[in-house]
Design a protein around this nucleic acid. Structure first.
Lengths: 348, 348
DNA sequence: ATGCCGTATGATAGCGCTAGCAGCTTGGCC
DNA sequence: GGCCAAGCTGCTAGCGCTATCATACGGCAT
């Protein structure tokens, strides 16, 4: 039967040119060690000669395996995930794995739908964000027999592997620093309220409670997506509600930048009248005037590590550790008084 | 022979359950109109019953067609492209098209390599950025028989379709506005120097030349990737080189934000001593203090339109226009004197 | 009645590749 | 010299789906 795609160079063409059988070509490409040296060279030459590229679809169909890594992220625009994706992508390029993204829009329901969809295509591995999947999604992932990495945070009982940091500890650490620097009435500005934001906030609350400084009034939050504008609004609101605050810790850097601008508008001097800290440590934090203190996380590295872990597992050399804590770093700058533990003082 | 993937629900299972032949199921799924009503219903019911999901690979192999749209962008972290990708993705979700991204890192050589790679996988369509492909890449794309959209800018002789704006005109427009507002010694700060930056700059130069205000000294550029920090540095440099400038037009908003911070550091009042304008109109521009004038572009819409055009073409209803100009908008804010044509005045 | 046509469904033959085994060499050992 | 294990290479039979052709059927004009 005359069929389509007559032009395509197939494994049979390569085999003919190299004077071997198709299956030997197939092996030479996938498991070079199983083919003798001379043959391998002839085959390689033929491949180059004919510019042969294996058909991924035929390969996937025949082997019931694919080289697709499914990646589900909550947002495509948030720089946080852009960095992670870049890390994933960069490492994937060095392997023969293909990356397939999808956007859950911060919805666990949507995430579950996408997990079903991906799993039905038998990917080689999956990367998902966080630990708050729906129960059904968790069940699917647990019984799926493929490498899975949860990224961005850590938690008990991983589906398979994890690379992240403790968002709670990161929230704690910055709050502890602010306390140590002498701040007392520390506000918390939060938007989006995704699970990771919430755990950062929990870290903040824990520290404040331990210090006996807990106060619901100090927290201003909204489920609206994070943006610089929302940062302006939240800062404005907290200044109205609690004009006596001496610092604000923002659940991310967009909010912090908005807070900085709003302070400028309101004539609130940073850090003299108000300490300001963000989260993520985007590049602009260091360049701002004044430079803004922020909690740095290893986003690129997180994506890269996740992909590496999957690639290794597929290659049959699973990573030594199934859970990797990439930690965080406080980058303290002029927007906060950076005194080491010092006697508390009343803020200007 | 006992083979793998025994679990998978296939079209044959659906056919058995519905009491028809496999090929009829295949048709019912792809061209419902060609199957009679009652049969179609029985088949649909069986599909739902068995939770059947077609195997993309088998489908691609048999039909020599895929549903993959290849998208090549220069950067994954730049918000500009994140917005475009979101537009593409959002529309792709409404079709059965799959999006596959790759990152050219602003390198035409890398872009060519990726174009070869993608084309060898016979995608259903491709989206590429700009009009500056290598000659070889251009040849490949021209002879490829698939819908292709070039996005982000417009130019003569498209490979197939185009959605974008005239970067030159956009550069012109903002410069004309600055002139009309009375600025005379208008600096231009540019980083990265990708083709689109360069055309924006060309627009700026054209206007300055027409006004007899052209001066190489007014342009400070670097091939370093754009960042807020680089914006600080460029502003600092131009202030050293030409302390008499009265406005700066930045080739993007990161640079503009850096310039704003640096002005604050240097004690240069905006807009009193220096007008400031950016490009892209990121969300933060409106929230900044002072709010920064910027040229808004339809990035999300660009991605969405590109995908729509491809989807339509595949569906056999090609769009009426092969070239779509989405234009731009000047969003004028407090960082520039926004006088309408007025008599020139010496800047403070 | 007869034959023709258009429509709806089915049978057949692959798409390009790989799993599982079979067959052939080679070399080592008794 | 004969036998067997180990190492290569090749054959066969699909993976799940669809392009192409074939067939069945009802309606209509002749």
């Amino acid at each position: 039967m005359a069929r389509r795609k007559k032009g395509r160079t197939t494994i049979a063409d390569v085999a003919a040119q190299a004077g071997v059988s198709p299956i030997t070509v197939s092996r030479a490409l996938r498991e070079p060690a199983r083919v003798s040296g001379p043959l391998r060279e002839r085959i390689d030459a033929a491949v180059r000669d004919l510019d042969y590229v294996p058909d991924q679809h035929a390969r996937a169909l025949a082997s019931a395996r694919t080289n697709v890594i499914g990646v589900l992220v909550p947002s495509l625009t948030n720089t946080v995930f852009a960095d992670v994706l870049r890390g994933i992508h960069d490492r994937a390029e060095k392997t023969d794995l293909q990356v397939q993204f999808a956007n859950t829009r911060y919805s666990p329901i949507e995430e579950e739908r996408l997990i079903r969809l991906f799993l039905s295509q038998s990917p080689a591995g999956m990367i998902v964000v966080g630990i708050d999947q729906t129960e059904a999604a968790a069940r699917l992932l647990r019984k799926a027999e493929l490498p899975i990495v949860q990224i961005m945070e850590l938690g008990p009982d991983p589906f398979d592997m994890m690379v992240g940091l403790s968002q709670f500890d990161a929230g704690r650490a910055m709050t502890e620093h602010l306390l140590a620097a002498g701040y007392r009435r520390i506000g918390f500005l939060a938007a989006r309220l995704d699970p990771r934001s919430i755990r950062r906030m929990a870290g903040y609350r824990a520290v404040m409670a331990e210090a006996g400084l807990d106060d619901d009034d100090l927290i201003v939050q909204t489920t609206a997506p994070s943006s610089v504008r929302v940062g302006c609004e939240l800062l404005s609101e907290i200044m109205t509600r609690r004009p006596d605050i001496d610092a604000v810790f923002c659940n991310n850097d967009d909010i912090a930048l908005g807070a900085l601008f709003e302070c400028r508008r309101l004539g609130v001097a940073i850090p003299e009248q108000l300490g300001l800290a963000g989260f993520n440590d985007f590049e602009m934090m260091a360049a701002a005037e004044p430079p803004i203190s922020s909690v740095a996380t290893e986003r690129y590295e997180m994506g890269a590590t996740a992909l590496d872990m999957i690639a290794r597992t597929i290659a049959g050399e699973p990573p030594a550790q199934k859970v990797v804590d990439l930690g965080f770093r406080l980058n303290l700058r002029a927007s906060t008084r950076n005194a080491q533990p010092k006697r508390p003082q009343v803020a200007g």
